[in-house]
Computed example of a mutant assay.
Amino acid sequence: MSVKSTTVNTVLGPVPAGDLGVVSVHEALLSVFPGAEHAFDVTIDRAEIFETLAAKLKDFRAHGGGTIVDSTGMFHGRDVRLYESLSRTTGVHIVASTGQGPEELLGGYFLTPQTDPPTPWPAEKFAGLFTAEVTEGMVVPRVERRGPAGLVATAVSAGGMTATDESLLRGAARTALNTGVALSVRHGSDAVHDLGIALDEKLPAGRVVVAGLDRADAVAAGAPAEIARRGAYVALDHVGVDDGTHIGDAERAALAAELVRAGFRDRILLSGNATGVAKGHTGNDLPYSYVLTIFVPLLEAQGLSEADTRRILVGNPRDLLSVR
């Protein structure tokens, strides 16, 4: 069912939700491993980065794409002014995110504030940090604030939720509840448990997307269907990745079809977790157009109709990203 709200927060400001077109919900544009921007052997040439990203976004648009969501959060290379220029140049809507996580990727400031003994930031402090990025604009460090974040994204440690992870998730959920943007949580060892933490903050399940549900362990545990049954969105967001940790595309397409047949068509989201430009780490050099060019035919081979795929690629992300 479509939501009543008509706008989505993009880096160029609110746009009508109906203008998004095909949306790739979990991607990275410029991804910088925290600290790499200070490394002597890492070059960050913004003109070169712009040209690389512009080419990839134009390819996405040429194959029918309309909107890219950069779901990397605050301190992993997000460059709002660069994204504004890219959106104007390519015609692709860009939704940027606030949020942080998991604990291992936080800077020390967020791990050991001035308390004795050091304690994790409380959820309300993370909520204040993230909420300001939605209501006042995303921070360009030490310079200014720009456009509003369109998503709050966090992640739980793969080995299981830590105390800091829980503070992050609760703070992110409070931000979503207070601002009307959606919450994306990349689950740790137990996706259903992690969703439960967000729901404990009184955030409606329909405002949550659980990321990484094409991980092999999550699929084996039946998490995708259970997450959908609880009313949250199921992100199969490593399309094109077959690394042993995640299921391959054939199994991924079969899983999507199974969810559709079970009545969960309105809960499925697709993405490639592609990295446009990676610095300080090895990115996933997959075209943003991969879902459209390679994966959609696999869905069709599983019996999904054009209406099914359009709902998954257009309607579901539109409803998720619409500010309520």
Results as ranks from 00 to 15, higher is better:
242 D>Q: 06
231 G>Y: 11
256 A>R: 07
220 A>C: 02
219 V>T: 09
253 A>W: 07
250 A>N: 14
236 L>T: 00
225 A>Q: 12
233 Y>P: 02
231 G>C: 00
213 L>G: 01
248 G>C: 12
252 R>D: 04
223 A>I: 07
238 H>C: 10
241 V>K: 01
242 D>S: 03
240 G>W: 14
239 V>H: 11
244 G>S: 08
225 A>G: 07
241 V>M: 02
256 A>N: 12
251 E>S: 12
213 L>K: 09
247 I>K: 02
235 A>E: 15
219 V>H: 04
235 A>D: 12
215 R>N: 04
223 A>T: 11
234 V>M: 05
244 G>E: 13
225 A>M: 14
229 R>H: 06
229 R>F: 00
242 D>M: 10
245 T>I: 08
224 P>K: 06
212 G>F: 12
250 A>R: 15
238 H>W: 10
230 R>G: 00
254 A>M: 04
226 E>G: 01
254 A>I: 01
253 A>V: 06
245 T>S: 04
247 I>A: 09
247 I>F: 02
212 G>C: 11
230 R>M: 01
253 A>N: 08
228 A>W: 08
214 D>P: 01
217 D>I: 02
231 G>N: 05
214 D>G: 07
241 V>E: 01
243 D>S: 08
252 R>A: 06
219 V>K: 02
233 Y>W: 03
245 T>K: 13
231 G>L: 11
215 R>T: 03
230 R>I: 01
252 R>M: 02
250 A>Q: 13
232 A>Y: 08
231 G>Q: 14
214 D>I: 06
236 L>D: 06
248 G>Y: 08
247 I>L: 04
243 D>M: 10
236 L>F: 02
235 A>S: 14
235 A>T: 11
240 G>D: 15
217 D>L: 05
256 A>V: 15
238 H>R: 15
226 E>T: 06
254 A>Y: 01
240 G>I: 15
242 D>K: 14
242 D>L: 00
249 D>S: 04
242 D>A: 01
240 G>R: 15
254 A>Q: 05
222 G>H: 07
231 G>V: 13
233 Y>E: 07
251 E>T: 12
228 A>M: 11
221 A>I: 04
213 L>S: 07
228 A>V: 07
249 D>I: 14
229 R>S: 00
224 P>F: 05
227 I>P: 03
232 A>Q: 04
224 P>Y: 05
218 A>M: 09
238 H>I: 05
225 A>D: 03
255 L>P: 03
231 G>D: 14
235 A>Y: 13
250 A>S: 11
253 A>Y: 04
229 R>D: 01
248 G>V: 12
244 G>V: 07
221 A>Q: 12
244 G>F: 11
217 D>P: 15
249 D>F: 08
224 P>C: 05
256 A>W: 04
213 L>C: 10
217 D>M: 09
243 D>R: 07
251 E>P: 00
252 R>H: 02
242 D>R: 08
255 L>Q: 00
256 A>T: 15
218 A>Q: 03
218 A>L: 07
228 A>P: 04
251 E>A: 14
218 A>Y: 08
230 R>F: 02
239 V>A: 11
217 D>W: 03
238 H>E: 13
230 R>K: 14
255 L>V: 12
228 A>L: 09
222 G>N: 10
231 G>P: 02
231 G>T: 14
214 D>M: 07
230 R>D: 06
217 D>Q: 13
250 A>K: 07
243 D>P: 05
239 V>L: 15
237 D>F: 13
242 D>P: 03
238 H>G: 08
241 V>I: 11
230 R>L: 09
